Structure formats: structure tokens, C-alpha cells
Simulated assay, not measured.
Amino acid sequence: DEEKEFEDKLDAIIRFNHVETLKLCLRDLNREVDPLYVGNYLSMLAETVMEVGLSLAIKTLGRKPRGKNKVSDMVVMGMGKLGGREMSYNSDLDIIFIYDGDDHEFFSRLGQKMISVLSTPTGEGYAYKIDMGLRPSGRSGALVSSLESFKKYHEENARLWERQALVRARPSAGNMKLGKRVMGAVEYFVYEKPLDEDFHKEIHHLRLRMEKELAKESEKKLNLKTGRGGIVDIEFLVQMLQLKFGHDYRPVRTQNTYRALEALNRCDLIDEDAFRVLRDGLYFLKKLENMLRLLHDGATSDLYENDFRKLALELNTKGDGEKLKETYISKTNEIRRIYERYFS
């Protein structure tokens, strides 16, 4: 029974993902691993599951592409936290499908099948939620792009935020030779094309919109991702500096925020005070995010009064929620101070 065999394989993928994540959770709760390790491990786990999911999608599609096209002529590009190897628990997968050839219909069906394999719930749950919003033309664009149409879009139509998003693009599954060719195009679009003199103002405008429309902070609720002085403050600042200096300083061309910070510091492109505040702040916020998501078993970034009290027990601050909140306010204030200095 082919359908039963398919479901069994699907269950096996989901079980493997859950067991590996659980093993990491236990090590994390036991304070054996740091947020950098967690982000890298979860991202490598996702890439392994994606590779198996793509193979299963190819086997169950039941047809081959026409002409000289091969089933292996597609790469899955990891974006966002996946591309930067900075995933947290319950993170979605931000991905883009790029193929080499002319059988658009086949590769569209293959992309749809892979999404179905990874995100369809079974008795074991599901592997990942998939976000395709960073593909060319966003949610209104085609599910998959040929390499040529990808290059044409970014040459002629891409907006600054799309160029910024490509800073974290990385081949994550599928044809890695094709992935290398995609990365050649990505490096050109991100680091070689000229930038408007006041490009940073557009990035800053988008950041403030995210804070207002997504974080919606209040006296009762803070948001450690999109809120004031949150993770996105650090990411946007680092990416702005990568776009600004990446043309002349190759070491800053990296998808990972920590690595980019270190490279910017080594190249004397940020001062020691900024480096220390951003590095320590990112470490603190990532640790907090991981613990918060374990606490709620979901992809939340909202922090309420009660969360600080519960997280204080896990973060070895002697159960003092007030003290943890004070530390949070202090660190996010410092991050925003640095952010404003570089964006002013």
C-alpha cells in the first residue's frame, strides 16, 4: 500500500525531528549548551529534515520533468533564521525554491509536495510550518523561480528590504551545485550593486513599522523579538552595516548575526562599546527567547509579567522575576541606544 508507506515515512520524519529537538531541550534546560549552539543545532536538524522531505516529495510525485530537466535541478534556499543558522524552538522555515531549467510546472508541483511533506499534520504532529513570504514578489509571486527569473527580478524589481533579506540566504537542501550558482548571484545583488546614499533611512523606517504594527508593546506586554531594543534592532543594525561595508570588507559577508558582529568588530567597523552591548544583548535575548518558547511550547516572543517570574527560575536568577525584568529593560535600552547612534 503506497499511501500507507508514504504516511509511515512521514511519521518517521516527524518523530525524528521531535526526538532530536527534545534531546536538545533537555541539554538546554540542564544549562549544557548556549544559544549559539541551539540555533546552529536546530538549523542543521531542519536542513536534514528538509533533505529527507525533498527526497520523499520526489519519490511520491509520480512523474519526471520534461526534456533535459532533471528532478535534482532544484535548490531550497534557507532564509531568515534558518539561513543564518539561528533558529529557535518552534521556528517556521523561511525558504525559497529555485530551479535550473524550463519545466516550471514540474518544479512548482515538487515545491508544493515538499511543503506538504513538511507541514501536513499526521498522528505524530507535523515537522515545520513553512513561510514562503521572502520569495520574489512575496506572497503574490510564483511558488518557485527559475535561476534566470530570480536574477532578472533582483536586477530589475527587488526592493531594499528584499536585498536586505538576501543577506541571510543560504543553500539548505537540494542541489548544492545550483546553490553555489545562486549564491554567486546573491552576493552580487547584496554586496556589489550600488546603494542609495540614505538607504539606512528606509531600513530604519521599516524597523519602526515592525515595532508599531507587530510588537504592539504596552505596560503589560513586551516583545523580545520585534519590540524596542529587541532582537530585530540588532539584526537590522548588523544587516545595514553589512550592506554598507560588505562591498569592501569580505569578512562581513556572513549569514549569521553573531559571526557578522565579530567580523564588523575585527574590521574596526563598529566600536568596542557597540560590539559588547550588541553581542551580550543578543546572547541574553536569544537565551530568553529559547526558554520562553519551551515554557509555552510555541513560537511566541511576547513577554508578560508572569513570564519573567517563571523564566527567572530557569535562568538561575533565584526566581526573582522583577530582577530579570529590570535586566531586560536595561539591556534593551542599551541596544536601542546603540541602534539609534548608528541610524542617526
Rank of each mutant, 00 (worst) to 15 (best):
251 P>T: 14
88 S>W: 02
73 D>H: 06
62 G>S: 10
264 L>P: 12
21 T>I: 05
309 R>I: 06
87 M>D: 01
4 K>Q: 14
111 G>W: 03
267 C>E: 15
75 V>D: 06
323 K>N: 14
56 L>H: 09
299 A>K: 10
326 E>C: 00
119 S>F: 05
286 K>D: 05
122 T>E: 14
232 V>S: 13
197 E>A: 05
264 L>G: 12
64 K>R: 15
74 M>G: 00
59 K>I: 02
26 L>Y: 05
235 E>F: 07
177 K>W: 06
157 N>I: 01
191 Y>D: 03
207 R>T: 05
306 N>H: 11
155 E>I: 00
258 Y>N: 11
254 T>I: 14
311 L>P: 09
148 E>W: 01
285 L>G: 05
28 D>V: 12
255 Q>S: 13
253 R>Q: 13
251 P>A: 02
15 R>N: 13
170 R>Y: 09
178 L>D: 04
129 K>A: 06
233 D>A: 09
328 Y>T: 01
234 I>K: 02
303 L>P: 08
140 S>L: 14
156 E>D: 15
7 E>A: 11
65 P>K: 03
254 T>L: 08
68 K>S: 15
64 K>Y: 07
72 S>M: 00
58 I>Y: 02
294 L>C: 07
319 G>T: 14
282 L>F: 08
60 T>Y: 09
104 H>A: 07
19 V>S: 12
141 G>R: 02
182 V>N: 02
211 E>L: 03
